[in-house]
Design a protein around this nucleic acid. Structure first.
Length: 1020
RNA sequence: GCCCGAGUGGCGGAAUGGCAGACGCUGGGGAUUUAAAAUCCCCUACCUGUAAUGGGUGUGCGGGUUCGACUCCCGCCUUGGGUACCA
């Protein structure tokens, strides 16, 4: 470090004034590059990569939710540096995004200008909070130098196929081409079908209000996640990323991560892996000969592979009809499959529809297609469907079963067709009831009592025996509800008596043997819709061949790596009335839009990438932010990856984290990154809510007829009837001495005479029992911060009033990092008071000292610590160290409060204790600690001072207080030597006056003595 | 419906099998002050008792395990979040 006092403003203030010392130290850190970290780590220095989820720089500036996670990581970083760890702690901007584009449309100001202004504001605010970022590594996803590499990764994805055998991504040039395609123009089409980035013409979620297409993940119940606008389905050419290829690895690699179970569960849920079986149903005439021939052909050809192949298969088999493949997780219920259902979009709809059913089917499919997702889910109560006229053969029973079309079967999952087992599936049951289809039970929930069917299954698990065994298990009669659990097979021929688990395995094997079924795995995860109709996003490095009328004709080709970055057009006219799914880049100047190459004319791709793209890999760029030739240097990547700690909001628990993991795995397959997973440990900070608001009402006593107002609903009614009035109060308190105070906006509204006797509590509500002048009921609730509620807390205001250290400390003191908690300005005042006391503990704040010379408090002296003081110091150091390691910052702070409470009472405060305290407080409240450190006579920064160590032996006390309980109830306490053995303790306990009194005349049945801890006597 | 989490004073929370309520806020009382602010000290789970080093109750509800349960087990209730015709 450089000269200690260089560039520091001398302050003449005795008082703790954050407004003076905080900017002073921020300037010092910046000028001295205190937190700049060398990319190369020396020798075997320990490394730690601590990452915050970088923010979207919105026009609103920082929200108090941001500093919560940022403070937590900052504490960890500062703590680690003081232990000699090399710490990488960067910050940047996720700066593409819709708001800037919308503002640009409105104002005509280019989005880049808007974004830069917002970034400047965010940067100022973050620096104001004293976070120890290495600002030399700052990146923004909108920087050309940055999105060059986002485009580069896209090209990599484009030029990759997923090899299912090796379970990894490989160069598209290594894709084996089927012989019949080799050398033909179809080769390229075949490759295009296998790329990780591919385009489709498909129904997409078009949101007119936002003017964009949304990913499935961004649509919630038929409405947009952002803004809650209606979303309609319409066909459009789109780019997709084949994330489903990595579903298995994305799921199984979760195991090795140090993430909360809930986030892992969330991701598993989203991936939605299920295992079951695919079963092929013979469709057409039911003649046994045909059926046997069909099975033989199946075994010979191995066809069909995909639903689209079915018709083809029927043709090559020269069979009258086709084959219908379904997916089920319950192959054990095959004997109960009494009909089949295919989705309205299923490729076989036409083939399966008989002439006399055609009209009804066409009509049904048309109405299903016009339904939005919203309609489909909202109308889910009523099942709809139509019979095709065709039948399939249940391979287990050989019986023909009808094939229906219904929109409760989704084309996008499994094979788009199901075998319906109304006896054991709720949806099939509802459908069967509605259309009068047969219901057969094939699973028994428990072995019937008294019956003999127990043979062959000695399993003890399963539903509660005895109870419940009678109801619902009698087949033949109509059942009231489908039993969807596991149990034992009935009505299943030779499989009867098998458990669900056994049955599944057996029948899957048997079907496989017959060539009509096989084990199968399915995922809920869908491919990632990767294109957006925005201007303010990364352009795709792609070109489409066009004819002289600029219509896309030929293939799509990719740019070369050397052509990157592909910048967006400089002068784009925004069409304010733009209200179609057409991308804004369609309006780009021709000079940008059209390219000539090898004598052919090409048009650029006009879709852009979604905001997720830039945030998928930013953690890699921080390692090597200025590398012009590589995304990241392999050597540096190896040193710093993986991210050791990643902190951010739970709202990214699924999408961002899944997308980033997917990209990372592709990079891993190419050896560009060295770890299979990017983020080793993940912590989600809980949301900070607005201040708790109290709503209450006052009910004039005379109008109360009965006490029913203690119930909230009836109180509401009374208010409505005019018998009671609402008040909005910011605070109410009822003390035990007989006065309750009701305040509004900080002003006292009135006091009510109350007493403990007549104040009752019902849940969260107070009420007067009797004798009260008025009855009061108060409802308290903390809400999300929002502009419309007017409860947004601005970090700027808090820093002006209380200082950055106070804000940091308060956010950490509120409660556990991961829980949701309401803001409290009084709480901020509380930690500010603590900082004032810390200051007073060390600095001379007396009148006499106000002559301009700052000095230590007279109590701070260069003397050894007393035993008690030393113990307090070591205890505090120990607790704080452990708490920071487990990120329990709230308790760490409370320990330090105890330290200050203790030492403020000491007439002599050894300087050494003060110094150590300042060091352990410094990760949490760095500014005040730097100042105090300087005042204690040290030069430079304390950022790299070794962290104080604690000595376990100092903590040992010679005497301890031992609680004595009788029958589990605390009755007395004795003081004993810390190492007193059981016998000594027993004697001491029994001779204790109070214990002797309470045990007199009674028998001590048992004595539990835990040396050094407690004594419990069981007395009769 | 399914998956995950939570439920402790007036409030935020602490204690993961051994003294429930640390620490902080709020409220009350006192000191200081001409006064106020600021600061400092004391009290603050509930009921009961004239009193205390008193008695009783108490960690969402009902059971259980244990000498001992906020903590572990079983069954519920409430609540927050995620997800949903995913076969």
């Amino acid at each position: 470090m450089k000269s200690p006092f260089l560039g520091l403003n001398k302050t003449n203030t005795m008082k703790y004034e954050p407004a003076v010392i905080e900017p002073k130290w921020q300037k010092y850190w910046e000028e001295n590059g205190t937190f700049t970290v060398q990319s190369r780590i020396d020798g075997n220095q320990r490394k730690k990569y601590v990452l915050d989820m970088f923010p979207y720089p919105s026009a609103n500036g920082l929200h108090v939710g941001h500093p919560e996670g940022y403070t937590a990581t900052d504490i960890v970083c500062r703590f680690e540096r003081m232990q000699g760890t090399a710490v990488l702690h960067p910050m940047g901007w996720d700066s593409f995004g819709l708001p800037a584009e919308q503002q640009a449309k409105k104002t005509g100001i280019p989005p880049r200008t808007i974004t830069e202004k917002n970034i400047a504001n965010f940067r100022r605010q973050l620096k104001m909070l004293g976070f120890s970022y290495d600002w030399t590594r700052e990146v923004a996803t909108t920087d050309t130098d940055y999105f060059k590499w986002t485009q580069w990764i896209f090209l990599l994805l484009y030029n990759t196929w997923f090899d299912p055998v090796q379970q990894k991504g490989r160069p598209i040039s290594e894709l084996p081409i089927p012989q019949d395609l080799a050398g033909t123009p179809a080769t390229e089409a075949y490759r295009d079908e296998h790329r990780l980035a591919y385009q489709i013409e498909a129904p997409v979620n078009w949101c007119p209000a936002l003017g964009t297409v949304l990913a499935n993940e961004e649509v919630i119940q038929g409405r947009s996640e952002r803004g809650n606008h209606p979303v309609v389905r319409m066909p459009l050419r789109q780019w997709m990323l084949r994330i489903t290829a990595y579903a298995d690895r994305l799921e199984s690699d979760l195991e090795q991560l140090d993430w909360s179970d809930s986030v892992k569960a969330l991701q598993r849920n989203w991936i939605g892996r299920s295992t079951g079986a695919e079963i092929d149903f013979y469709v057409g005439e039911t003649a046994a000969d045909d059926y046997e021939q069909w099975k033989t052909e199946r075994q010979k050809t191995g066809f069909p592979r995909k639903p689209e192949d079915f018709a083809h298969f029927a043709a090559i088999c020269r069979l009258p009809s086709a084959v219908l493949r379904i997916y089920t997780t319950r192959p054990d219920t095959l004997f109960g499959a009494t009909y089949m259902v295919i989705a309205p979009e299923h490729p076989l709809v036409e083939n399966l529809t008989t002439p006399e059913r055609k009209e009804a089917v066409v009509e049904y499919c048309r109405s299903a297609a016009s339904k939005s997702d919203l309609d489909r889910t909202e109308l889910s109560k009523e099942k709809t469907g139509v019979f095709t006229g065709s039948y399939a053969v249940n391979p287990a029973t050989g019986q023909p079963i009808p094939i229906w079309i219904a929109d409760y079967v989704l084309i996008s999952y499994g094979t788009g067709a199901i075998m319906a087992v109304p006896g054991h599936d709720t949806r099939d049951y509802e459908f069967a009831k509605q259309f009068g289809l047969p219901i057969v039970e094939v699973v028994q929930r428990a072995i019937g009592d008294g019956s003999d069917s127990r043979d062959g299954c000695g399993y003890g698990y399963g539903g509660g025996s005895g109870e419940g065994s009678g109801e619902g298990s009698g087949f033949g009669g109509g059942i009231e509800v489908a039993f969807t659990g596991e149990g034992w097979a009935i009505n299943s021929d030779k499989y009867n008596g098998l458990s669900t688990v056994e049955f599944k395995e057996k029948i899957t094997a048997d079907l496989s043997q017959m060539g009509v079924g096989r084990k199968a795995v399915n995922y809920k995860l869908r491919d990632w819709l990767f294109s957006r109709q925005h201007f303010w996003g990364e352009p795709f490095p792609l070109l489409h061949e066009v004819d002289e009328n600029n219509n896309m004709t030929g293939r799509c080709i990719a740019l070369e790596e050397s052509e990157l970055p592909l910048d967006m057009p400089a002068d784009l006219k925004f069409d304010a009335a733009h209200n179609s799914p057409e991308p804004p880049l369609e309006h780009a100047p021709d000079s940008w839009l059209y390219v000539e190459r090898n004598g052919k004319k090409y048009k650029r791709e006009t879709n852009t990438m979604p905001q997720w793209a830039g945030s998928c890999w930013y953690y890699l760029r921080f390692i090597d932010p200025k590398n012009g030739g590589q995304l990241v240097s392999p050597e540096l990547e190896k040193q710093w990856m993986p991210v050791d700690l990643y902190v951010g909001g739970a709202e990214h628990a699924v999408l961002h984290l899944l997308y980033a993991r997917f990209w990372h795995k592709v990079l891993f397959d190419y050896g560009i990154v060295s770890t299979p997973e990017p983020f080793q440990k993940l912590v989600n900070q809980g949301m900070i809510l607005g201040e708790t608001e109290f709503t209450g009402f006052i009910l004039p006593k005379e109008k109360i007829v009965e006490s029913s107002f203690t119930d909230y609903e009836s109180a509401l009614k009374k208010v409505a009837e005019g018998d009671a009035a609402w008040v909005s109060v910011s605070e109410i308190s009822i003390d035990r001495d007989g006065y309750g105070t009701l305040k509004k906006d900080g002003t006292k509204l009135f006091s009510v005479k109350l007493s403990v006797n007549n104040v009752g509590k019902n849940g969260d509500n107070f009420f007067l029992k009797d004798d009260g002048v008025q009855d009061i009921q108060v409802d308290s609730r903390a809400n999300k911060m929002s502009k419309s509620r007017g409860n947004v807390v601005n970090p700027d205001d808090v820093v002006v009033q209380y200082g950055a250290d106070a804000l940091r400390l308060y956010e950490m003191f509120m409660g556990p990092l991961e829980s949701v908690k309401p803001w409290s300005m009084d709480g901020v005042r509380g930690v500010r008071n603590f900082l004032d006391r810390v200051w007073k503990m060390i600095v001379d704040v007396s009148e006499e000292a106000a002559d301009g010379r700052r000095q230590m408090a007279a109590e701070v002296q260069n003397v050894p610590l007393s035993v008690e003081q030393n113990r307090m110091l070591h205890k505090t150091v120990k607790q704080v160290t452990l708490d920071i390691q487990t990120m329990s910052f709230n308790t760490a702070i409370s320990r330090m409060m105890e330290f200050v409470n203790f030492f403020l009472k000491q007439e002599v405060r050894p300087k050494r204790a003060m110094e150590k305290f300042v060091l352990i407080l410094s990760p949490l409240a760095p500014h005040i600690c730097e100042e105090l450190w300087q005042l204690l006579g040290h030069g430079g920064t304390l950022a790299y001072e070794p962290l104080p160590q604690y000595d376990e032996s100092v903590l040992l006390e010679s005497q301890v207080e031992i609680p004595i309980s009788i029958n589990g109830k605390l009755r007395s306490k004795i003081t004993a030597a810390v190492n007193a053995d059981e016998q000594t303790l027993e004697v001491a306990a029994l001779s204790d006056a109070r214990i002797a009194e309470l045990t007199a005349g009674k028998t001590i049945v048992k004595k539990i003595i835990v040396p050094g801890k407690m004594i419990n006597l069981v007395v009769k």
